[in-house]
Write a protein that binds this DNA or RNA. Structure first.
Lengths: 246, 246
DNA sequence: ACAAAAGTGTTCGTTCTACACCCATGC
DNA sequence: GCATGGGTGTAGAACGAACACTTTTGT
């Protein structure tokens, strides 16, 4: 290591990719930039590390709260990776630590704080037509979505998209929407209910989806899934399934 | 985002977990600290970002070169994660971006640069008895080893531990040593030779291991493995296998 | 001839897939 | 009754683990 006096200090930012499912689509929380550079452009919520004594994860939680009015309760938050290309911010050298956050579809949580201009946009629209986001946020979003997709395979992340109580149908919806492909409802049901500590039955039923009432579940204690639920699974609803009769 | 004038600037370091296999053990490259704090303690090689215009990945490559005399040629290097606990360096706020590097067992590469005091130590010894490393490097090492272990399952990382030409036996050695458990040689052979673009036969044979000469391979173009080679695989050499006759 | 390692074949059990089929409810 | 979704059963395919067996070298 070099001597301390020569060390360049740089600004460290924290950016958040906040994902949820609204209107049956995977959506990401974006803000309209209010200051230069790139005023008016859409960007991931985030900001610079506040004090010199703030932990990175804490900074991420604080930014989320400040910019979106969302509280930390029951929120999945994990570090994604750090982006440090020298020219990623035209002002000066900025290194950003990106986080992935996952929320259930709350009624309309984006209200308090600096959230005046925060909005949800479908991920698909942004990835299909890059260039809408400021800085390298297209790239960060892409990495985050890919991370979320693999996390569904190997961890219980899917429950973070759900309200505290949910049905197997809700959970399958998460997988189908995030992966963008249909799954066999029957095999899916067996897999998730058979996976140890993934789901715990709450004892009640709901008929919100019509048909026979479905059991309600909460997220269990398991964080990892063994065996995993792989994307290469069931191609879709079979001939027996109802929807393919079109 | 806040205004630029209030932003605290912090020192950004890059630390490297350089892994290789020597003497049939997974070993990590460490340096003895020459300056305060924690002089004399072992630490991961690394240092502060040099100029304000250096890409993170480049900084990692430069540090590796400077501290160990290793060249970038044929080296696996990937970002691990960023560690930002406020008290991780007693001097001041330091954020470190950790990288995982994997090398083949070169004759004795640690020579040039500031490498006077660089040395290889078995990972197992360090993880079994924590506290030997400076700062939070125990934790970083642990994360890096876990990352390497899962990378073997889903990617072709294992070839990065091998010299340019290697046998299936060499490759199996990598898996057995990194995972710390024996694998069935016959099933392993079938798996890796059957995986598309994982290995390309070089056309020559070697008898360095005795017995029937083994085919030599180079790393193929594939980066990901489908299907993966899972750790939950074969428990070990069966009754028919030669080694279990003890 | 024998040991030792490379490499192939085969069997058996588990898991995944694609369905058929029954269950419980609203209309 | 009939439509709708919830949930179980099951046959066949695919895959992995275990291991017998053949091949090719060195001594």
């Amino acid at each position: 290591m070099e001597d301390k006096w020569e060390i360049p200090r740089v600004a460290v930012a924290v950016d958040l990719v906040v994902l949820t499912i609204r209107a049956a689509r995977l959506q990401v929380l974006l803000v309209e930039r209010g200051i230069e550079p790139q005023v008016g452009k859409l960007a991931l919520p985030g900001g610079f590390m506040a004090s010199g004594q703030e932990d990175l994860d804490l900074a991420a939680r604080r930014e989320l709260q400040e910019e979106t009015g969302l509280h930390a309760a029951q929120l999945h938050l994990e570090q994604l990776r750090t982006y440090g290309a020298p020219d990623r911010d035209p002002r000066e050298r900025v290194i950003t630590v990106a986080y992935l956050a996952v929320l259930p579809n709350l009624p309309d949580p984006v209200a308090g704080g600096d959230a005046r201009n925060a909005r949800w946009l479908p991920v698909e629209d942004l990835l299909d037509a890059p260039g809408q986001l400021a800085f390298d946020h297209d790239r960060i979003l892409e990495d985050a979505v890919e991370r979320a997709r693999t996390r569904l395979e190997y961890t219980t992340l899917a429950t973070a998209f759900c309200l505290p109580e949910f049905t197997v149908n809700d959970l399958r919806g998460v997988y189908e929407i995030v992966w963008g492909k249909p799954l066999d409802p029957r095999n899916f049901h067996r897999k998730v209910t058979g996976s140890d500590d993934f789901l715990v039955e709450v004892g009640m039923r709901t008929n919100k989806d019509g048909g026979r009432p479905a059991a309600l579940y909460r997220a269990g204690a398991a964080k990892a899934l063994h065996p995993p639920i792989l994307r290469g699974s069931t191609t879709g609803r079979g001939a027996d399934g109802t929807r393919s009769r079109a």
